[in-house]
Simulated scan of single mutants.
Amino acid sequence: MSLRIAEVSQRSGVPSSTLRYYDQIGLVPTGRESNGYRAYPEDVLDRLRFIDAARRLDLPLAEIGELLGSWESEACASVKARLRPRLDEHAARVADTIAGLTDLQDSLRSARAHLDELPDREQRCDPSCAFLLNETPPPVACSLGEGQAEQVAAWRHLLSDGRLDRVAGGVRCALPIERLAEAAALSAAEQACCPFFGFELTLRGDSFVLTIRSPDDALPLLAELTGLDVVAA
């Protein structure tokens, strides 16, 4: 028994325009009746429920399409194995977004507080008014002192367990998941003495990816930390 688009839309709650788009990109392909109308199989409602659940998790449509093929043809254990790393990666991206938005919120509050502190004057604004963020960037220098050599050695030991590659503005290294706690602790310690470095940890099933980014003037320090010539990148 086939269903027409209006019935599928009514029973699934998915707008007809969205169903046509899904058909266009191959996510929910349809057949055609002799009169040219779209014809959907009965099990399209299950497929649409899966898509809706995945979209609620904000998974990209391209990934949803890949997962659908597994969900409809493979064993549940295989589907779970495919889904876990995707959810881990997406959760890491969301965490990065939340951290970025939190930083932005703090900057906006700081800007508002600075604005309120400025005197109300009849004269034109001077440079102190022109810059809402009354902050100076941290100096590009490590404040660790005597413990720097020991920390560099710890980083070199960690990174030797994976493949280290240059990326735009820094380095990236894939490491086994059992080194995650060590990487997180080192990142936190390094952030305390070198706040100009940025650290990202992205989970990928039985491994994770550590990305360290640096401003251009701190690339020599990053090269010393990792042993990779990032200055020439």
Results as ranks from 00 to 15, higher is better:
D165I: 08
A149V: 09
A75C: 12
I98P: 01
A130G: 13
E146Q: 13
H114V: 02
R109K: 08
A75K: 10
C76G: 09
A141K: 06
P119D: 12
C142V: 14
G100A: 11
L164E: 00
R86I: 05
G69A: 07
R179L: 09
P176Q: 02
L159S: 03
I177L: 15
D165S: 11
R179H: 08
T136E: 00
N134W: 06
S73E: 10
G100L: 03
P139D: 01
G169M: 06
L101K: 09
H114G: 05
S110F: 00
L133Y: 13
D96K: 03
V167N: 07
E122T: 15
L159P: 03
R109A: 10
F131N: 12
C142A: 10
A92T: 03
L115E: 03
C76N: 09
V140E: 02
A99M: 04
L175Y: 04
L164P: 04
E74Q: 13
C142G: 04
Q148A: 10
E72M: 07
L68E: 06
A141F: 04
L175S: 01
A154F: 03
L108H: 05
I177P: 04
T97D: 11
L118D: 12
V140Y: 00
N134F: 02
D106N: 07
L132P: 00
E178Y: 15
I98V: 14
R163P: 03
D120P: 03
Q123A: 15
